[in-house]
């Protein structure tokens, strides 16, 4: 009987600990909401989201985060142009063309690339890429939308590649064999059968890559240039949401409007990435069901 009670106790302990992720996630939401709300007594929600001036330390301060949102959007969109073709292409190569021995080398390369810290990417962008672009395009400053997009794109490539490769792995072998049996060659099988079958799985990879790019902090902090204006060209320096939080939080007095405004920026950022993750989750669940997998 003692043994059974002990078993029950242990099970309860694990159940309680298992909820820690939920507790932390909820905690994050509560903290963000609680610390963000006071700013909306100073500035209305439409003015906050749509305002084109972000001068949090001016007299009087202005809290319009539209330039920050646009900056995040443009650098992430630019990054997508790089990481989607490269990431999906790499996944297709790994899945379709690489033999066992090549995979044994190439998969670790992708994983290692994914593990390079963002500060290193930022540093690399700052000291190598930005001067190079400045030189090449004769710019006043190399820290801009273009340089940030390139660095973010490179960073997100391994993320997209490994998720897309997983998705391709779920496509049943029988699809491929059926296509070969009808006389299709490997390329035709790949583009007409395997990619469509893995389509939603690949879109999950793209969404998560996008989410990663939007949430990336150190790289954009170092490479984006920091100007809080709506960019008019890819050579303009910008200040994405994450960079604004990271750069300004250190100087914002706790409890000030600026402090609350930065939490509101973080809340907006959280909502966007959360939405992306949920969408990715839903798509991938439907995808697995479609292919007849339960897990």
């Amino acid at each position: 009987m003692i043994k059974r009670n002990k078993e029950k106790g242990i099970e309860w302990l694990f159940t309680a600990l298992a909820f820690s992720s939920l507790v932390f996630l909820t905690g994050i939401v509560i903290v963000l909401v609680k610390e963000a709300l006071p700013i909306f007594s100073t500035v209305s929600l439409p003015a906050f989201l749509g305002g084109e001036s972000w001068y949090p330390t001016a007299e009087p301060p202005e809290f319009g985060i539209f330039p920050l949102i646009m900056a995040s959007f443009w650098v992430s969109a630019g990054a997508m142009l790089i990481c989607v073709p490269l990431g999906v292409g790499s996944a297709l190569y790994l899945h379709e063309l690489a033999g066992e021995r090549q995979r044994a080398v190439l998969k670790p390369v992708i994983e290692v690339l994914a593990s390079v810290p963002s500060i290193i990417y930022g540093f690399f962008g700052m000291v190598i890429l930005a001067p190079f672009l400045q030189d090449r395009f004769n710019l006043p400053i190399g820290l801009c939308v273009l340089s940030t997009s390139i660095v973010l794109g490179v960073m997100a490539t391994p993320t997209v590649a490994s998720i897309a490769e997983d998705a391709l792995g779920y496509v049943p072998r029988s699809f491929r064999e059926a296509s070969f049996a009808l006389g299709a060659n490997r390329w035709e099988t790949l583009t007409r059968v395997i990619i469509p079958a893995a389509g939603s799985g690949i879109s999950t990879a793209v969404i998560l890559g996008m989410s990663r790019a939007i949430g990336e902090t150190m790289t954009v902090l170092m490479v984006a240039g920091g100007a809080a204006v709506v960019p008019s060209s890819i050579f303009d320096p910008v200040r994405p949401m994450t960079a604004a939080i990271a750069a300004e939080m250190g100087e914002a007095p706790v409890g000030s409007d600026h402090y609350h405004a930065l939490f509101a920026v973080a809340l907006a950022l959280f909502i966007v990435t959360f939405a992306f993750n949920i969408i990715a989750e839903l798509i991938s669940r439907r995808y697995r069901l479609k292919l007849g997998l339960s897990r």
Binding site: F19, V31, E35
Partner: peptide, 25 residues
């Protein structure tokens, strides 16, 4: 399902948001 979704979403939270959470809590 609830725990799995929490874990997946926690993995997707931008790192700077963790920083703010740590600061506040």
């Amino acid at each position: 399902n609830l725990i799995r979704i929490s874990v997946n979403n926690l993995a997707g939270v931008p790192s700077v948001v963790f920083g703010l959470f740590g600061l506040a809590i």
